[in-house]
Structures are given as structure tokens and as C-alpha cells.
Design a protein around this nucleic acid. Structure first.
Lengths: 183, 183
DNA sequence: AGGGTCAGTTCATTCAATGAACCTTCGCGG
DNA sequence: CCGCGAAGGTTCATTGAATGAACTGACCCT
């Protein structure tokens, strides 16, 4: 996708769409952001869920941190381990992902709904712009509940995909650590 | 950008966002679609406005036609000339471009508004989801009026950029032909 | 016949993506 | 204190796509 020579070519474009694509328009980048919304925070989890080459993932994470979309922060000291979490700027990408997902679901032929997104406060399924049709408000991603749809593979090969099978609230980190599994 | 080996890698992803990116996630693709919304329809106009390599543009246009986003149709017989116009499926990408543009304008540092988008019926500037805050309705792209903003280069090098300087309604084709210029 | 427009295609070069292997730090079990 | 494995990378050879310049071909005008 979207390659890194973008700065060179898109920069001269007087257009905010081009500027956005300079940051998130490369291959894998928006999928990394999507996984961050789903609660993925660690390098290895991104890696197994996306299937991207390690070097590309490292480059994308670093670029997203530099662009202020992700924040890299220490979650344990020994051994030192960092996690990547969405900043306010990253959270602002939620409408982009909503719009892309809605288009992929409605307009790409042969697509079965994979996941449904609901307003956690009232249970209503979100409208096409990420708003709650019942409450008439735009729903921030932290108030979105993700539910499995008919098209979701019930037995994904990777553990991250398995952790994302059930109903989950966005932005809640994936379970980890000794108690993490399924106790 | 997002590159053409996408089919291979994104396809196994059970996700409508990934499916959307398979179609519009490659480098240049979304900029082609943006220009189509602005009224660009001809190969040479895309070429001069985007600055993309000719071979890449030809490949992207063909891929978008095959994906049903653009329709290629004959507009004159001799010499045979085709133009590329958005289909219903392509028009459905408008929220994606709106969301990307809003993010690029609000969240990418150092960005000055380049263009403003208004509801042609009432003149109100569109909200972040492409809705009209006054009329409380989602505004279809054909009812959107594009107006120049402070960040717009007043003298672009290419004629297409010059034709897009003023206030224009989306989807209206660029002027062409003997009367086209600025009479 | 010559020049110009439009819409491409071809081709050599450059640049990024891929995937496998390797590296480092640490925790743990014996 | 030795070996093992996990986490989070880096390095490297190979593949593949993007780039830009040149070329093609159909047609029109003068």
C-alpha cells in the first residue's frame, strides 16, 4: 500500500486528503491503526494478527509514533517492554475506519458482515457515519461495542484473532500475562 | 502505497476494512477517486493534476473500472475517446474521502484549510461526517459545493489545478473543448 | 507533409516489500 | 550457571512494484 516515497510525491499536493494519506496511506498502516482500535498494543500481537513482515511493522509503528498517531510507552521495566496506544490524533481516525469498513461491507461484492459495531450505552447498531441512530450522537470509539458477524471465521489460526472473536469494547487491551488466557 | 500485492495479503484478513483497502488502498488510488469527485474525467487531466507516472495511472484506472468504482465510457467516436466517471459504488466512497480530508485538515500539524465544502442548497459548511448541520441531512456529493480556502495555492502550475481554483459543484466535469477555456 | 492532441505501452532503473535468519535482554527451570 | 524460550526488534538477499523517459498509434488541422 501504500509506500513510503509518499512524502516526496504527495507533499506538493495542495489537499488535506493527500496530507492524510502521507501519514496513513501506506501499505499496512491503516490495518495497524485498526488493530489498535481493537485493543492490540504489542509488537508481537500486531505481527501475528496482521501477518506483515517484521521489518515493515517496525517501520510503520515508528512512523505512526513520529506522526503522533500512536504513543509508545513502557508497560514493564524488566525486561523493558513497550506498548503502542492510540493518541487523541489516532482516535480521530475512527471515522475514517468506519467509513472504509462500511464501504467494504456494502460495496465490495461478495462480502458478508464480519463484525457489527454497537453503541455500548444503548445497544443500537451504529449508522454509516459512526453515529448512534437512537441517541442521535456521534459515538466515540471508547463507547463502541464490537460484536461478531456471520462472516467472521470462528476459528482463526492466530491467538490474537481468537481473542477478538467475542463481543468486546473497542480500545480495551487484549488479555495478557499469567491470567490472560481464558480463565 | 499501498501496492498491488494486496490481494495476496489482505485477502485472508476477515475484515471489511481490509477488503476496502484491497480496492482503494494502493498508492494513488484514492487520489484518483478524489479527482473524479472534483470533476476530472480524462486520462490526461488525471495525469497532469496528480503527477503520477503514466503507467501507474493507467493501471489504477483499469483496476478501478474492474472493481466497479469507475465506469469507462465513450464520449466521442472519432478519434475514439473514453472518460472515467464514478459509479454508484464510487460515489459511496464520498464519506471515506470526507473523513480522510477532515482528519488531514484537523490533525496533521501545520495544515491550513485548502478547500471548504458546503451544502449547495443552503450554503452551510458541511460537518465532519459530510452532513449539513443546518438541514440535518447527509449531503450527497452532487449537492456539495467546493470553495477555495486560505491554504489553496492561487496559481498552480497545471491547467487542471487552475480549473479547480474557484467555487465548483462536485462531480461537474471540467470544462473542455473549443469553448472550454475561460470565455 | 508536418505538427499537435489524446491515450496509452514499453523499458531500464530505482526503491520498497518480503521472508528468513540472526541478535539481545531478560525470566525461568533444573 | 546452563540451556530454553519469549519479546522485540535488526540485517540481508531476493522479489516486485513505482518511476520517468521514450516510443506508439489514431486522429485532426493547416
Amino acid at each position: 500500500m501504500v509506500p513510503m516515497a509518499l512524502g516526496k510525491d504527495y507533499a506538493h499536493q495542495q489537499c488535506s486528503i493527500a496530507r492524510a494519506l502521507e501519514v496513513v496511506g501506506e501499505r499496512w498502516t491503516l490495518l495497524v491503526v485498526r488493530d489498535a482500535f481493537y485493543g492490540v498494543r504489542r509488537y508481537n500481537d500486531f505481527l501475528t494478527h496482521l501477518g506483515a513482515p517484521r521489518a515493515v511493522l517496525a517501520a510503520r509503528l515508528q512512523a505512526l509514533v513520529e506522526a503522533g498517531v500512536l504513543d509508545r510507552r513502557r508497560y514493564q521495566e524488566s525486561p523493558p517492554r513497550d506498548e503502542y496506544v492510540l493518541t487523541a490524533r489516532g482516535l480521530a481516525l475512527w471515522p475514517v475506519l468506519r467509513a472504509l469498513g462500511a464501504w467494504g461491507r456494502d460495496e465490495v461484492p461478495g462480502a458478508v458482515p464480519v463484525r457489527h459495531f454497537h453503541h455500548a450505552d444503548c445497544g443500537t447498531e451504529l449508522g454509516p457515519y459512526g453515529e448512534c441512530p437512537a441517541c442521535r450522537v456521534p459515538v466515540p470509539p471508547g463507547d463502541v461495542e464490537m460484536r461478531p458477524g456471520a462472516g467472521l471465521d470462528p476459528d482463526p489460526g492466530d491467538p490474537v484473532g481468537r481473542a477478538l472473536l467475542g463481543t468486546r469494547r473497542l480500545l480495551v487491551p487484549l488479555p495478557h500475562g499469567p491470567e490472560g488466557g481464558n480463565s
